[in-house]
Simulated scan of single mutants.
Amino acid sequence: MEIKKTDLRKNGKKPKKPFSQRFKKNLPLMLFCLPGFIWFAVMSYLPMFGVIIPFKDYKVFSKNFFYNLFQSDWVGLKNFKFFFQSNDAWVIIRNTILYNATFIVVNIVLAMFTAIALHELLNRKAAKFYQTSLFLPYFLSWVVISYAVFAFLSPDKGLLNALITRFGGHSINWYTNKSWWPIFLVVINAWKGLGYNTVVYLSALSGIDKTYYEAAVMDGASKWEQIKYITIPMLRPVVTVLFIMSLANIFRADFGLFYQVPRDSGPLYSVTNVIDTYVFRALMKNGDISLSSAVSLLQSAVGAVLIIGANKIVKRYDPERSLF
């Protein structure tokens, strides 16, 4: 027995503990994770049975979902072909990808520098006040925000038109003028999510060793040089993880932002119509459950491919910063 232990030590391996002993040791952690596992199983994995809906011409024959599902005709990739051959396919795909790419860049950069600014404030009470103020919009629903935006952009009594006419300009009907809406949507999205995104960076900033800054001060580094050569490089792992996770949703769009805020205005469809609003309108107007499910499955598949591909690229060049 002593020889075996010696051999194991030489080989750099430890003897494997019996399953019962490992199970007993990890039982508290397993029980702690059980509620989350049940929630994911019921809410995320059990509904995945419905992935066959996009490949069927789903019809309602009775109140029984499974009966309707098995009685509906199998159409293969017909729903996907119909989506890509529609006149709006290119527009909504373009809008979804470009908006989300812009959101990712703007939100990462803006949240990072906002967190750095809050972290550098010497008055901690003021920093907490600013942080709370930035966080409040995150809890507002898009319905409330749509009315707040309407108070600014209303053609008759909007604040923005009042300022324009006061300085001698002509009022603009913003809900029929599509040229400004890409900017409006980016600004509104950044404003609503800034507080939530900042929290992640603030937690990362609190974990940076203060001795780095003390050494930099002794070497005569300015505040900007400390941020440039210490803070930003230290935040790079967090930025990498958030970027990879954001890529999973690049083929999805925030329904409330693109439907509620523009008030479902028809003249703005060319710049506000995205995949999620297209699916909603197809479902509401035509009742086409199969087409809506096909587009949703396509979104999930593209997101999975992007997040795995981005993680592989990061893992190849910097394994320590990969997500998995």
Rank of each mutant, 00 (worst) to 15 (best):
L8N: 14
K13L: 12
K14G: 04
K14W: 07
P15E: 14
S20M: 08
L29Q: 09
Y45I: 11
L46K: 04
M48D: 07
G50A: 06
Y58R: 02
Y67K: 09
D73H: 13
K81N: 13
D88E: 11
A89T: 00
T96E: 06
L98F: 11
A101M: 15
V106F: 12
I108S: 09
M112I: 11
M112W: 01
F113Q: 02
A117D: 01
H119Q: 10
L134D: 00
P137W: 01
I145E: 11
S146W: 08
S146Y: 01
F150L: 13
L159M: 09
L159H: 10
G168Y: 14
N173Y: 05
F184I: 14
V187W: 06
N189P: 03
A190P: 05
A190K: 00
K192G: 01
G193E: 13
G195L: 10
Y196K: 12
Y196E: 09
N197Q: 15
I208W: 08
D219I: 02
W224L: 14
I227N: 10
I227T: 15
R236Q: 11
F243L: 11
I244F: 07
G256T: 08
P267A: 00
N273L: 12
T277M: 04
A282M: 08
N286I: 02
S293F: 06
S300F: 11
I307C: 10
A310Q: 01
A310L: 08
A310T: 04
K315R: 14
